[in-house]
Computed example of a mutant assay.
Amino acid sequence: MKDHTCRVLKNRHISGRLYLLELSCPGMETPKAGQFLMLKVSKSLDPMGRRAFAVADLREDRLLIFYDVYGRGTYLLSQVREGESLEVFGPLGKGLFNKDGEKHLLIGGGVGLAGLTLLAKELRSEGKRVFIAYGGRTKEHLGMEEWLKEEGFEYELFTEDGSLGRKGKVVEVLKDFDSSWIVHACGPKAMLKALQRIEGYRIYLSLESRMACGWGVCLGCVVKERNGSYVRVCYEGPVFDANRVEL
């Protein structure tokens, strides 16, 4: 892992709060599914810290990041123009997905789907069966559907208000799959906690957390394990067995 100066190829609005950032990062080690990058979103010291983003896809010499604009950091990132450069540290994260098994169900909530899409491509390249359940509050929260169509994955959409796809919460998809499927999930904490309450499945969670450093030094992203100790999302994670951590 090291710092890279990456050129912005695209940075465009998709829908709702969702944006797609495409970068060219010559010399960067190829990120693996589950890993993330720490981006310096401004040339100034405002904000001081970097922001963590999942690596959503790799296409030839392009690296894709989907992100929601929520605070000042992501707003500033949304203002970066094509041809400009960003300082990027990574790839980071040592705890990655378990790709054992032949059938994999990926459950993404909102922009959390971006934490699973590179996994979907890796699994497919290994000849595994992949099904993706993608959920959000409304259809505006499902802006990554175009990526799913382009890549040709089997998928089902869920919205809580019924404005697109199946009405209900995305975790309800488990009713349609038996325990022979390995489950991987990334999304809001409430969604991940709901999955932890479901028994009989092997479930892996990709956690999102506020990070200052991204490589285990600041201890700002720790979560508690069920044995009472603590682990760092950025270093021991970001992917954990659902039975290992308390959310």
Rank of each mutant, 00 (worst) to 15 (best):
207 L>I: 15
162 G>A: 11
28 M>G: 06
183 V>Y: 00
182 I>W: 01
134 Y>F: 14
227 N>A: 12
245 V>C: 02
214 G>K: 01
122 E>G: 06
162 G>S: 10
48 M>T: 11
208 E>Q: 11
114 A>D: 05
41 V>I: 11
86 L>F: 06
21 L>K: 04
23 L>G: 03
122 E>V: 11
80 V>S: 01
144 M>D: 03
203 I>P: 00
194 A>P: 02
204 Y>A: 05
89 F>Q: 12
226 R>G: 06
136 G>S: 06
197 R>T: 07
110 G>D: 03
28 M>A: 09
142 L>S: 02
77 L>N: 00
155 Y>R: 01
232 R>M: 15
67 Y>G: 04
166 R>N: 10
82 E>P: 10
60 E>V: 08
122 E>M: 08
78 S>C: 11
31 P>R: 03
201 Y>E: 05
64 L>W: 13
234 C>S: 11
109 G>V: 06
195 L>H: 00
219 L>I: 08
55 V>S: 01
87 E>K: 13
97 F>N: 02
239 V>S: 06
18 L>K: 00
179 S>R: 12
246 E>W: 10
11 N>P: 05
12 R>P: 00
198 I>Y: 03
10 K>Q: 15
123 L>H: 02
203 I>F: 02
197 R>P: 02
202 R>E: 13
241 D>W: 11
83 G>F: 12
69 V>A: 09
6 C>T: 02
235 Y>W: 13
58 L>G: 04
12 R>L: 13
87 E>T: 14
42 S>R: 05
242 A>T: 06
224 K>W: 04
210 R>S: 11
45 L>N: 14
213 C>F: 06
156 E>S: 13
19 Y>Q: 07
203 I>M: 08
193 K>F: 08
228 G>H: 10
26 P>N: 08
203 I>V: 14
79 Q>K: 14
159 T>V: 07
236 E>M: 08
18 L>S: 02
190 A>M: 09
82 E>I: 13
202 R>T: 12
81 R>T: 15
188 P>E: 07
124 R>N: 07
203 I>Y: 00
5 T>Y: 12
50 R>L: 02
163 S>N: 12
84 E>C: 11
1 M>P: 10
187 G>W: 00
91 P>Q: 04
176 D>P: 00
96 L>I: 07
185 A>R: 00
53 F>A: 07
45 L>I: 12
178 D>R: 05
63 L>G: 02
105 L>I: 03
78 S>G: 12
81 R>P: 07
157 L>W: 02
180 S>R: 14
47 P>E: 05
212 A>Q: 10
70 Y>M: 15
158 F>Y: 15
221 C>R: 00
156 E>D: 12
168 G>L: 01
